[in-house]
């Protein structure tokens, strides 16, 4: 709502953000130099930046990057379609909702990543396992927020629809769904974060493809600057997805 009215501050906020990160990195660099932080646990930011080139060239980062992004895309697409559908279903059938809503909420805070052995058994050591783990982790917030959005549709808007004699189908597509989109997007953004964490985590754990595996490799080789460089790439993926989500949100919700 308010974002629509936000006055464009130009590039200032972005610059401030970047400056903040730069300042933090400088601080860490300083703390390590004076010996307050152990360089064998936290490498110097300058070393990390210095290792970017090496990691990119030697470790096939681009390929891994694309793989992780693909897994994320599939997981998010699944989360969106299945999550919103389940949310709609639970909102419609109140018995079902009352029976399951608490469970869904509980599932949202469960450490889904620990279920990876089960998924390995079901889907094998493949990208599918990783996608499904991301999907499972991202699903609950989308379901919960979809239900919340649908049930908080203002009564008077429904009354407007009724007075214009909308069919139930029109009521859903023209009033209930658009009025719930802001809440659904909150769920999707949360789901995206959960999915990404779990995707990279499982890549790491089962040592299969993507940036997670790279982090694992580099950490096992005790290449700390490289490890942190690889983590930076995960951050880039996350930021990228977030920006896409916000674009989509602004385009859909006005």
């Amino acid at each position: 709502m308010t974002s629509r009215l936000r006055i464009d501050d130009g590039p200032l906020p972005a610059l401030m953000g970047l400056a903040g990160i730069a300042a933090l990195l400088l601080l860490i660099e300083g703390l390590i130099s004076v010996g307050l932080l152990n360089p064998f646990i936290v490498p110097k930011p300058s070393q990390v930046i210095g290792s970017f080139y090496r990691v990119v060239v030697e470790e096939n980062v681009l390929e891994r990057f694309v793989l992780t992004i693909k897994e994320c895309l599939f997981a998010v697409a699944l989360v969106t379609i299945v999550g919103v559908s389940i949310g709609v279903l639970l909102h419609r059938v109140s018995l079902l909702r009352q029976a399951t809503e608490t469970w869904v909420a509980a599932f949202a805070s469960a450490p889904v990543v620990l279920m990876y052995p089960l998924f390995l058994v079901m889907f094998g050591r493949s990208a599918l396992t990783i996608v499904m783990m991301g999907f499972a982790a991202g699903l609950p917030p989308v379901i919960l927020k979809t239900i919340e959005g649908l049930s908080s549709t203002r009564r008077v808007l429904l009354a407007v629809g009724q007075s214009f004699k909308l069919t139930p189908r029109q009521m859903f597509w023209k009033i209930q769904l658009p009025s719930s989109l802001p809440a659904i997007f909150v769920g999707l953004k949360l789901g995206l974060i959960f999915a990404l964490i779990n995707i990279v985590g499982v890549e790491f754990l089962i040592n299969f493809g993507g940036l997670g595996q790279l982090i694992n490799d580099l950490a096992e080789r005790y290449d700390l600057p490289g490890t942190y460089a690889a983590i930076s790439f995960v951050v880039v993926v996350s930021v990228g997805f977030f920006m896409i989500a916000e674009r989509a949100e602004r385009w859909l919700i006005r």
Binding site: M1, R154, V156, L157, A159, V160, Q162, S163, F164, K165, L166, Q170, K174, I175, P178, S179, L181, I253, R254
Partner: peptide, 30 residues
């Protein structure tokens, strides 16, 4: 609801996701 009746509600009832034009178009779209 009867098709002969049109209502203006006491509460604010515009659709926030539609422009003024799209709001007013709504019954015609339906």
């Amino acid at each position: 609801p009867h098709p002969a009746i049109g209502m203006v509600f006491q509460e604010e009832s515009t659709f926030p996701w539609r422009t003024v034009l799209q709001n007013v178009e709504f019954p015609l779209e339906i």
